[in-house]
Amino acid sequence: MEGLTAVHSRIAEIQNRILTFASASSTSTAAARSAAWAGAASAAGLTGTTGTAAAGAMATGATATAGSGLEGQVVAAAQRYLGVPYAWGGTDPSVGLDCSGLVQRVYGDLGIDLPRTSSQQATAGTPVAGLGEARPGDLVFFDNSSARPGIDHVGIYVGDGKMIAAPQEGDVVKVQDVGTPTLIRRVLPASASAASSAATGGAGLAGVPYADLFAAAGARRGVDPALLAAMAKVESGFDSTAVSSAGATGLMQFMPATARGLGVDPSDPASSIDGAARYLRQLTDRFGSTDLALAAYNAGPGAVARAGGIPPYAETQSYVRKVTSAAEAYS
């Protein structure tokens, strides 16, 4: 019972600090509000680097519904910033966050890199057809300014038609209705729950060498872990010491120049897998499809660009088929 009493006491302390900050927000300048938040957040452990999602949600009355696995991690990470004041251009939660600063910070906490602005973030990941198809952790984007066309606001979908967002000057990060978004993007792998299961040894990657590394890299870079595992199988047969006749090395068979350009150590499985995921993400964004990205990984981006599709090389065409087939088996 003593432990439970301590938890209730801690929650009450955080609630009081947030209420004190809210009171300061209504009567002081922006600078004073930021100072009030910084003091309250630091003392309460709600700066985004410590504290708990549960305490943050309870302190603000949030009732957002999280998904499971990676989806739930995104929502939990976002909940840690509830109550942080809005600050245009803000990326530091001890001072304030704007909408895209919040999104970048939340995904950064999970090791996933996103661009800085909402318009740039609107090109990340893959499109979601509509709110009915949205999953927790998806990004919802809005064009709110008639005077300036284009995306100018973003929030993190948490389920049940709600999002966590940094709305506007004078407000704070909070849970609110999504309304009608202009577009929705999924930054997590297409099957986040499957990726999460793979990370714990379940589903299609159970028993696959380096399954945890494939799952982690896939989550960071927005690439299907099954696809990464399939590439490793075809490239090296999961042999981290493999060396091809052309000089490609390691688990993911990087040529020396490509490895140097990406800052990858081909002999280190973790570095090799993460580098492959990062490179495949770049190729997918450039060419617009997984098949073309795989072809570019095998034959080089220049060959795909010159061919206007998968190059007419038997090796490359076979590579794309083999990787795709293996990925389906692992999914």
Rank of each mutant, 00 (worst) to 15 (best):
G56V: 01
S94C: 06
D98E: 07
G72Y: 05
W37I: 05
R80I: 07
G90S: 00
L82C: 01
V74I: 10
A40G: 01
A44Q: 14
P115L: 08
G90N: 00
A57N: 11
A64P: 13
D98R: 04
A44W: 06
G101T: 04
A40Q: 12
W37T: 04
M58P: 15
G69I: 02
V75F: 02
A54L: 15
L97M: 01
L102V: 02
A44F: 09
A36H: 11
G39L: 14
A44M: 05
V103S: 06
G69S: 14
G101A: 02
A66G: 06
G67H: 07
L110H: 06
A32S: 11
Y81F: 15
T49M: 03
A32T: 14
L102E: 02
V106G: 11
G69K: 07
G108P: 10
G96H: 00
L97F: 03
P85G: 01
A36S: 15
A31T: 12
A40M: 11
G51W: 13
L114Q: 06
A77N: 04
G67A: 04
L82T: 00
A76S: 14
L70Y: 13
A87C: 11
G51I: 09
V74Q: 09
G108L: 13
Q73A: 11
L70W: 05
V84M: 01
S100G: 08
G101I: 02
L70P: 06
A53L: 13
L110Q: 11
Q79V: 00
A41K: 02
G96T: 00
V95I: 10
A59M: 09
M58F: 13
A32Y: 00
G48D: 05
Y107A: 14
G108F: 15
L97I: 03
G72H: 04
A87K: 14
G56T: 07
G51M: 10
A77T: 03
A78C: 05
L97A: 02
D109E: 11
A35E: 14
Y81L: 05
A76R: 12
W37H: 06
P115M: 09
T65G: 04
M58L: 15
A41R: 01
A36L: 12
L102M: 09
G39W: 13
V103E: 07
G83A: 03
V103T: 15
V103Y: 09
A87W: 12
S68M: 03
S42R: 07
P85R: 01
G45F: 13
D98V: 05
T52I: 14
A38C: 11
V106F: 08
A66W: 04
G69C: 05
D98F: 02
A64I: 08
G111S: 05
G69Q: 03
A32F: 10
A44V: 07
A78D: 00
Y86D: 01
Q104D: 11
G61P: 09
A66M: 08
G72K: 03
Y81R: 03
S68T: 12
D109S: 11
V106D: 10
A57W: 10
G111R: 06
A77R: 07
A77E: 10
G96Q: 00
P85I: 04
A78L: 08
G108W: 15
S94E: 14
G51H: 14
I112C: 12
W88E: 06
